[in-house]
């Protein structure tokens, strides 16, 4: 099985590479909140997503079509994990203690990346839209908080750095909305097309 994953699903290896890079260069990345949150944490999610694609492809049973119908549970897990890591004090935890650093490197790829990869494509189109809209809205409010908060919210970062993070989050929100909405104007994004392997998932899991 492992060899099948390795040969058939290269994303798995990319994922490993990303996590390793994030770990090796953590000192550099974590020095500034922008590289820490926008670069490192997103990269960890992406790594988890890639790994999840491989896993889901090789072991369709992992998608849990019954317990995770419509991807609802996986997405909920990811949302809660996201909320947890959005709290400034947990960012401090990840920076100050080994336990926090460990929790970050394990939970973000697994609970956010992998579970999204195993769930997202099956979610109803309406739910996906709402989650995306909420993400943009959250980015906007976070950006607002970070640019205007008079105090430092993370003990490990300076006020100026925090404000820089705020502006970057604003741009991120704008870029993400453009990326998400432009295809709606040009392509034929019908809700129907879902990866074919989901259909087979049920057969394997039962």
């Amino acid at each position: 099985m492992i060899s099948r994953i390795m040969t058939l699903h290269r994303p798995w290896m990319t994922a490993l590479l990303i996590v390793m890079l994030c770990f090796v260069f953590r000192g550099m990345l974590e020095r500034h909140p922008v590289t820490h949150i926008v670069v490192q944490l997103s990269a960890l999610v992406v790594a988890g997503w890639l790994a999840g694609q491989s896993l889901g492809g090789a072991l369709p049973a992992l998608r849990l079509t019954d317990w995770n119908a419509g991807g609802s549970v996986g997405i909920l897990v990811a949302l809660f994990a996201g909320a947890f890591w959005m709290l400034p004090r947990n960012i401090d935890w990840a920076l100050g203690q080994t336990s926090g650093e460990f929790a970050k490197f394990v939970s973000i790829p697994l609970l956010m990346g992998v579970s999204l990869a195993l769930s997202w494509s099956r979610a109803p189109a309406l739910a996906k839209c709402l989650i995306k809209a909420n993400a943009v809205s959250m980015l906007l409010s976070l950006s607002w908080v970070y640019t205007t908060a008079p105090e430092r919210l993370c003990n490990n970062y300076l006020l100026g750095q925090q404000q820089e993070l705020g502006s970057v989050l604003l741009w991120l929100a704008i870029v993400i909305s453009v990326i998400w909405s432009v295809p709606l104007f040009v392509s034929q994004p019908l809700a129907k097309h879902r990866p074919a392997n989901i259909q087979t998932a049920r057969g394997v899991s039962t």
Binding site: D66, W67, N68, A69, G70, S72, V73, F80, F84, L126
Partner: peptide, 23 residues
């Protein structure tokens, strides 16, 4: 969205766990 019984149960469990963790 056809949340079946199992998924609904799991979703409730995850929500409770998630909310407690955040709490």
């Amino acid at each position: 969205m056809n949340l079946k019984g199992k998924a609904l149960l799991a979703a409730c469990a995850v929500s409770i766990a998630g909310l407690s963790a955040l709490w």
